[in-house]
């Protein structure tokens, strides 16, 4: 992640320095990089892509031209630069009248303009011919979501994952929708599925543990203990650098502590709290450290641990 960001910044910096002669080439390479890395950098893409399409359109080959058009239109929709998006989408739809990909662009434009009825009709029309079009099925979910119908979005996405069961991102999205609907048991099931797909992903552990923790202790603290284990796994995988997992450990231990006496038999939460305090002392502005210590004390964790950890540093 860090290296991709650096690469992008390098490319952007290069754009500042090249003269007008090399500019088209630099623009192209920047847009290509954004496409390949699949990052969301909509403002830059809109501005720079528009410039490329306006001034240097002739330099792009057919394939790259339409890829760029799609990219710039999507980015423009993201920034609500609707007139630009509309003009590009119209061109795309004229060039590829049959294409589902063009239909998706048109649907996104309609959605951005708030014409939800028309967008929905468009999706239905194309789904009749191609019921297995993943792009449009996903747009259907997004359409419901953008109207705020979490229930309907969940319903549509459930139908989608029932068929496309190995789509990890879809499970992740369904999990977050369930969290919005406060259906934590279902959300936990979704995040379990994400974990099955990527057992080496730190984020998957943290997400699942977050949901389990939010769901409450459960019968005899089963949820909390499972959350604690998954937070511990995230800490272990990240070597203690994942602050969210550390905070989670503290919180979930406090949750368990309300239930029974010895919630922290192995001293894990104390170690997590000490690590947090140490990191605040090293990396954060000075005024944040007392706040963090205060919070950890309220959870009954620092007192001794915080001091023992912090004192040798001074």
């Amino acid at each position: 992640m860090g290296s991709t960001k650096k690469q992008l910044e390098q490319d952007l910096a290069e754009l500042e320095h090249v003269g007008t002669s090399g500019r088209a080439e630099a623009l192209r390479s920047y847009l290509r990089l954004v496409r390949e890395l699949k990052v969301r950098d909509s403002e830059n893409v809109t501005v720079l892509g528009e410039e490329l399409l306006r001034k240097h359109r002739a330099r792009l080959g057919a394939e790259e031209l339409w890829l760029t058009m799609e990219q710039v239109a999507t980015a423009a929709l993201d920034c609500r630069a609707l007139p630009l998006a509309a003009s590009i989408v119209t061109q795309i739809c004229e060039k590829f009248p049959e294409s589902l990909r063009a239909a998706r662009m048109m649907e996104m434009l309609l959605e951005a303009r708030g014409k939800y009825e028309d967008a929905s009709k468009l999706i239905q029309k194309h789904l009749e011919d191609a019921p297995d079009c993943q792009m449009l099925l996903k747009r259907q979910v997004a359409l419901e979501k953008s109207q705020g119908n979490v229930g309907a979005a969940i319903e549509a996405l459930r139908k989608y994952v029932d068929v496309f069961q190995t789509d990890r991102e879809a499970w992740e999205e369904l999990g977050s929708l369930y969290v919005q609907a406060q259906m934590y048991a279902q959300a936990a099931a979704c995040y379990e599925e994400v974990l099955l797909h990527a057992p080496a992903s730190i984020a998957a552990y943290v997400q699942l543990a977050d949901v389990l923790y939010t769901a409450g202790p459960g019968p005899a603290g089963a949820n909390s203990r499972a959350a604690r284990t998954h937070y511990a796994a995230a800490v272990e995988l990240s070597g203690g650098t994942n602050a969210r997992a550390l905070y989670g450990l503290c919180a979930v231990t406090a949750q368990l502590g309300g239930l029974r006496g010895a919630a922290d038999p192995d001293g894990l939460a104390a170690a997590a709290a000490a690590t947090l305090v140490q990191r605040y002392a090293e990396e954060a502005p000075a005024h944040l450290l007392p706040l963090a210590q205060e919070m950890l004390r309220a959870q009954g964790l620092t007192g001794k641990a915080g001091k023992t950890a912090a004192s040798p540093r001074k």
């Binding site: 604690r228 796994a233 894990l268 090293e282």
Partner: peptide, 24 residues
């Protein structure tokens, strides 16, 4: 598979705490 991961995590964290402070 996550049996004993808590103990491993404690060890990791303690090792990290003992390590010399990082330079800024």
């Amino acid at each position: 598979k996550l049996e004993g991961i808590e103990v491993a995590a404690v060890d990791t964290l303690r090792a990290r705490l003992r390590a010399p402070p990082r330079l800024k």
